[in-house]
Simulated assay, not measured.
Amino acid sequence: MIVLFILAGSSIVLSLMFGAVKVGFSEVTSIVAGNHQAPSHSIIWNIRLPRVLIAGLVGMGMALSGTILQGVLCNPMADPHVIGVYQVQASSWSIPNIGNGLFQQLLSEPLVPVL
């Protein structure tokens, strides 16, 4: 368990370090510790750290939903493909996207002659 925490912490630090702008390990630790004068302060706090935290929350949510699915069905091999949840997810994704495309098309066509 300790190894997993070490790996998680190191992946968080590495994801804060690497990107379009490279930030060194010492600079990341000083920014997280509270150094507001560092040049990469806004990159870490406004862009990279929220992405890392949201990715962790999404991963925890997926793990929790899988655990609940396996617990409710009393099936340790419960898989979304076997149960049919995957097809519902695909249709729930495609309907708003198709509707959004039609909605944008209806809105943009009357405005074209005006522009």
Score class of each variant (00 low, 15 high):
Met1Lys: 08
Ile2Met: 02
Val3Trp: 02
Leu4Arg: 08
Leu4Glu: 13
Phe5Val: 06
Ile6Gly: 02
Leu7Asp: 12
Ala8Tyr: 01
Ala8Gly: 10
Gly9Asn: 05
Ile12Lys: 03
Ile12Asn: 03
Ile12Trp: 06
Val13Asp: 01
Leu14Val: 05
Leu14Ser: 13
Ser15Arg: 05
Ser15Ala: 14
Leu16Arg: 00
Leu16Ala: 02
Met17Lys: 05
Gly19Phe: 04
Ala20Tyr: 07
Val21Ile: 14
Val21Phe: 05
Lys22Thr: 15
Val23Cys: 04
Val23Leu: 05
Phe25Cys: 07
Val28Tyr: 00
Thr29Glu: 04
Thr29Gln: 06
Ser30Ile: 04
Ser30Ala: 15
Ser30Gly: 06
Ser30Val: 06
Ala33Leu: 14
Asn35Thr: 07
Asn35His: 06
Gln37Arg: 12
Ala38Thr: 07
Ala38Trp: 01
Ser40Trp: 06
Ser40Met: 14
His41Asp: 08
His41Gly: 02
Ser42Ile: 08
Ile44Trp: 00
Trp45Met: 13
Asn46Gln: 10
Ile47Gly: 02
Leu49His: 03
Pro50Gln: 03
Arg51Met: 14
Val52Trp: 04
Ile54Asn: 07
Gly56Thr: 12
Leu57Thr: 07
Leu57Phe: 13
Val58Gly: 04
Gly59Glu: 15
Gly59Ile: 15
Met60Thr: 12
Gly61Trp: 00
Ala63Leu: 13
Leu64Ala: 14
Ser65Cys: 06
Ser65Trp: 02
Ser65Val: 05
Gly66Val: 09
Ile68Trp: 12
Ile68Asn: 04
Leu69Ser: 07
Leu69Val: 10
Gln70Met: 15
Gln70Tyr: 06
Gly71Leu: 14
Gly71Trp: 10
Asn75Arg: 09
Asn75Ile: 04
Asn75Pro: 03
Pro76Val: 04
Pro76Leu: 01
Met77Ala: 14
Ala78Thr: 03
Ala78Lys: 03
Asp79Asn: 13
Pro80Glu: 01
His81Arg: 12
Val85Gly: 01
Val85Phe: 09
Val85Gln: 00
Gln87Asp: 11
Val88Met: 03
Val88Pro: 00
Val88Leu: 11
Gln89Glu: 14
Ala90Tyr: 02
Ser91Cys: 00
Trp93Met: 09
Trp93Arg: 06
Ser94Leu: 11
Ile95Lys: 11
Pro96Phe: 09
Asn97Tyr: 12
Asn97Cys: 04
Ile98Lys: 01
Ile98Leu: 11
Gly99Pro: 10
Gly99Leu: 12
Asn100Gln: 10
Asn100Ala: 10
Leu102Trp: 04
Leu102Val: 15
Gln104Lys: 09
Leu106Glu: 12
Leu106Asn: 09
Ser108Pro: 03
Glu109Phe: 12
Glu109Tyr: 14
Glu109Ile: 15
Leu111His: 08
Leu111Asp: 15
Leu111Val: 09
Leu111Arg: 12
Val114Pro: 00
Leu115Val: 13
